[in-house]
Design a protein around this nucleic acid. Structure first.
Lengths: 171, 171
DNA sequence: CCTCGCACCTACGAAATCCGTGAGTATCGG
DNA sequence: CCGATACTCACGGATTTCGTAGGTGCGAGG
């Protein structure tokens, strides 16, 4: 039972290839480990090992590497609005020229929790979390719009968060 | 050292106030606990207790309650695009009538990881995670647009995730 | 073909943590 | 005054974490 993953010993994790460069190239076992931790970020290594067919130590080392590489993070997540007195919004941005500098500048702002480059009528989308209306206004109108390259923005203030999960693995 | 939170014994957690209504109304200590777990979801209870000025057992009970109440969840988060072969997009939705049934229907879809009601030119925004283009097309055009009440949608396919944090507490 | 080096795994013991539990205290609300 | 709630302190066994030593497979280079 436990639906072992049986990855056979030969499915080497770190890819002999290291294909196309960039991606850390995760194997099936690491994927399975991540799935386990998406269900419960505090699940013990031994339990994960049993589920994916690895020893406790091996799981521990893999997890540590995934964390070090920044592939995954184990954290507490909440709904900021529930947690209290805060304003949250999604901001769509249009910019000209190279988008990377703009994205990097947004990333540097602590109020921006989520920055993504998109295709469609926005070039970038950013989720901002603020203390109150004044703070939100300041961030959007004074700081984001002031960035060089930013042509225009459109804001969507959050009224209610209905769902927030991270279990793409389990379905 | 450790920047204790010194909440004094009298700051009762379950709020005698229960201000502005609905919210579970978290006190400063629970907030501090959440902040600790936003930095590291696996931090031991004793360490958290030392940081927030509570005993190990008290922290354990608080964390359990926060998890049970659904105020917080401790999970592994990743960038689905990095983890592999997947298409991701933000979808803005306009609908007519009561939005709750629509939001609930979206919440029920496993591909929707994030559902939020907004003010602005969209009524709802949804983040979808899909296997591939076909899957994405199916979800957006066949399932979301088919929901009763949905008037129109606009999609923003993710090209690159630049930032993803959950540390609103620490700044 | 052989050997070095690397990445990954298993094995194991010691230290730390988790977790259930029970007694005693303080505060709040009825 | 009483009940409910929440916290502290304390304990002990089970479990987990963590460092580390030892073994193995595989590619690179001689």
């Amino acid at each position: 039972m436990h639906s072992e993953v049986v990855a056979s010993r030969s499915a080497d994790p770190k890819g002999p290839s290291s294909k196309h460069g960039g991606s850390p190239s995760l194997d099936a076992v690491s994927l399975a480990i991540i799935e386990q931790l998406q269900e419960d970020g505090r699940r013990p290594y031994a339990a994960i090992g049993k589920a994916v067919g690895l020893s406790e130590a091996a799981v521990r080392q893999r997890v540590q590497k995934l964390l070090d590489q920044g592939v995954m993070q184990i954290v507490a997540v909440t709904d900021p609005l529930t947690v209290g007195f805060r304003r949250q919004a999604m901001v769509g941005i249009n910019a000209e020229g190279d988008l990377d500098p703009v994205a990097d500048a947004l990333t540097a702002m602590p109020e921006c929790e989520y920055v993504v480059m998109t295709a469609g009528s926005f070039d970038l989308m950013v989720e901002v979390v603020c203390e109150d209306d004044d703070h939100l206004l300041d961030v959007i109108n004074k700081r984001i719009r002031a960035l060089p390259g930013v042509r225009s923005t459109e804001s969507f203030v959050y009224l209610k968060l209905k769902k927030q999960t991270y279990m793409w693995g389990t379905r």
